[in-house]
Nucleic acid binder design. Sequence first.
DNA 1: CAACTAATCAAGTACTCTCTAGATTACTTG
DNA 2: CAAGTAATCTAGAGAGTACTTGATTAGTTG
Lengths: 237, 237
Amino acid sequence: MTADATQRVFKDRLYGQFARIGKALSSAHRLELLELLAQGDRTVEALATETGLSMANASQHLQALRAAGLVENEKRGLFVHYRLSDPSVFEVSRALRTVAERRLADLQRLVRDHFGDRSDPEPVSMEELLDRARSGRVVILDTRPATEYDSGHIAGALSVPIGELKQRLKQLPKGKEFVAYCRGPYCVYADRAVELLRANGRRARRLSAGFPEWKATGLPVADQRHPAPQTVSRRRR
Amino acid sequence: MTADATQRVFKDRLYGQFARIGKALSSAHRLELLELLAQGDRTVEALATETGLSMANASQHLQALRAAGLVENEKRGLFVHYRLSDPSVFEVSRALRTVAERRLADLQRLVRDHFGDRSDPEPVSMEELLDRARSGRVVILDTRPATEYDSGHIAGALSVPIGELKQRLKQLPKGKEFVAYCRGPYCVYADRAVELLRANGRRARRLSAGFPEWKATGLPVADQRHPAPQTVSRRRR
DNA sequence: CAACTAATCAAGTACTCTCTAGATTACTTG
DNA sequence: CAAGTAATCTAGAGAGTACTTGATTAGTTG
């Protein structure tokens, strides 16, 4: 075999390997599964329910993700728990989202039609929230389901699942400013929380990012087992 | 329609849009085309030749990339020139490569079998090269084809296409240390250059990254039209 | 303006992927 | 140890993707 042919075979194999990752990311359902797993571990059943997939179908997609090395699983009793296998998995799905946001006019239109104008009140950036949290001037609300809060949340945040916010409104301190966050930029929980809070005369804004972005940036997180292991202080990213 | 059903439809459409990017990245050939385009613009013919694809096939893959917003094209005379549409496109393919490197044992094995031990001499990091380049102690060699050098290279680098290195060995200064780079971590040009230089008694090492990584990091680049527009100085990334 | 060339288009075949439905496995619990 | 449940497996139909071949388009050049 000539040297060139050897190179060609190598390149085909090399890009074939990279394409395994691309293939795993080529299905809408699998991307949704990855985004849910970025919030924390989940069982197949939970994932199937939340995505509206059949158990068998969800299971098959998860196995495709596993074959590409993107997720790991572990059987505990009757349940199989899946999790992202590496922080780089979230990074690639975030990079993919960024390209889509910048380059797909259809996506921009879809988001505009669904959310309308989301720039009033103006969303808070991670940097800004970090600064304010340090000075204690702000109450951070995690509007995701409690289990997601338990498996990791912004250090200092209160768990207020969106469905419970209404009846817990009175318990919330007055005079403070609120910042609500949820799963990510396309999650509606934080929008709803802000709306509800403002309707009740509070100052409230939405964090533009979600918990996975916060965590990936290396900002302070806490979880149920190890409450607030890091102080809320600036960190190099 | 219930609120939940509306949400479901939105999510399906949302992830459907993200999946358009994933689908574009799901083919080995398309990933190779993107990597070539990261070196600089190219015509369909050039891409077809370099990848070993038929013209028609290359054209079709390029159109798939274009439909996903990853590349743009422009007709100039008989030729259609393609280019990456946005820096985020390189970022996503880099993120994909990172996941593959970390998670696919097959890939690790493939690279080991093809390159053997690449850690002697130890590759130079971008940081390290930047430091050394500032002090003028090092000669940087761009071993890619001249057209790729012309469309962008590390500031201060000399163009020495790998095929011409042998007869230009004498022209190269003695006593200096050389750092060779090429298209990226899986490109062999720099390895060959280092081998050749060392066989001729020079001190030479390989840059672990390629030009696209250097550029994406925001480090100083130059191109033919605007030689050395930035000084070689440290930059925040 | 005829000959030439880069690129795309159109159509067909082979292949791969997706989802469903029903069967099966592995583990738990009464 | 039988009944129940989470998850997977198997097989098959339908949809989508990839590559080839030959025709066509758009632009250049003698």
